[in-house]
């Protein structure tokens, strides 16, 4: 796929936004400015950014408990997302959802989810809806390796294949379902094989390479738009932080973490753009500075925003 300077800037900037957003949340958690849990997407940026960059604004995504990256990549407003994570009135869900429930339906983001596999049904249903309404949209359904061991995964893939729904199932295989490795919890280590049972085409992709992700997702998005039904992609990636804030990461080695940090998606892409002569060092630094400023503004906005009024407790339950 061709890459223009404009696209290169967009991809790099979004990945940097996600990285700095997540690093900032870690800081806010440490300072007790952010409360509760937060599952951070740092290290996995190329998957969300690459995949979402090949779909249209009116296409849908469903996200996971590690959903900040998807929300940002689906054109999320950094200020409203940050405010949501802090439980503020100005948040994208008015402070009611929080990190685990980030959603922006106006942008086609059907939401993060606190239940592993919780987005699979929603994505499959959105696919059915597209088909019944004869639209030309697609759904990118993101979920983790752990979700492919849950019943809903198998039930949804069967339906999607049976009815040829336009859903691209994207498994973000970051090697661990919380603390339990793929080796310790999957009978089949190559997760793409799970799609074979449903006659759904599947393939692995390097989840640290944003261009590779674009290439593969683009192919299956076209396949879906042409009415050929679902596909299943396993993006092999890694999360830098623990499962959540309190995770001491005893289940993986520091060597393994180092190996993956050396395959950093932002550095890989930046280097490639330099090699190809599309971006130079100075431009890359400039993007990073811009993002830094955006994140600072988002945090400032979120911190200064008020909490919801007490009456909000009972609003939004029913129409």
């Amino acid at each position: 796929m061709e890459i223009t300077k404009e696209l290169a800037i967009k991809l790099l900037k979004q990945m940097m936004e996600i990285r700095q957003f997540e690093d900032m949340i870690m800081e806010l958690l440490a300072k007790n400015i952010a409360e509760g849990g937060s599952h951070l997407y740092a290290g996995m940026e190329a998957v969300a950014v690459g995949a979402i960059s090949v779909i249209n604004p009116d296409d849908y995504i469903t996200s996971t408990h590690r959903g900040h990256g998807h929300a940002i990549a689906k054109d999320g407003d950094l200020k409203a997302l940050m405010a949501e994570i802090l439980g503020k009135k100005t948040g994208v869900c008015k402070g009611k959802g929080g990190s685990l429930h980030l959603a922006d339906l106006s942008k086609g983001n059907l939401g993060a989810n606190g239940i592993v596999g919780g987005g699979l049904g929603i994505a499959t249903g959105a696919g059915l809806s597209i088909k019944l309404q004869k639209q030309n949209k697609v759904v990118l359904c993101f979920f983790g390796d752990g979700a492919t061991n849950n019943g809903i995964f198998f039930e949804c893939l069967n339906m999607a294949s049976l009815w040829k729904l336009p859903v691209i199932y994207i498994c973000e295989n970051n090697k661990y379902a919380m603390s339990v490795s793929v080796e310790r919890s999957h009978a089949v280590k190559d997760i793409t094989k799970k799609a074979l049972a449903f006659d759904i085409p599947s393939e692995n992709v390097d989840g640290q390479d944003v261009l590779a992700v674009r290439e593969v997702v683009s192919k299956w998005v076209n396949h879906a738009r042409e009415g050929n039904g679902p596909s299943f992609i396993v993006a092999n990636t890694y999360r830098y932080y623990g499962h959540s804030r309190s995770d001491p990461r005893v289940y993986r080695t520091r060597e393994e973490e180092k190996f993956w940090r050396e395959r950093d998606p932002i550095i890989i892409f930046g280097n490639k753009m330099k090699e190809m002569g599309i971006l130079n060092e100075e431009e890359i630094n400039q993007i990073e500075e811009e993002v830094k400023k955006e994140i600072e503004e988002a945090v400032d906005f979120a911190i200064k925003s008020p909490y919801p009024e007490p009456e909000e407790l009972y609003t939004d339950l029913y129409v």
Binding site: C93, K96, Y307, P310, E312, L313, L317
Partner: peptide
Amino acid sequence: GADVPMPKSPVLEKLA
């Protein structure tokens, strides 16, 4: 408890 899903916001959670 209030008859609502548990809200995230710390101020609303306390009220719930």
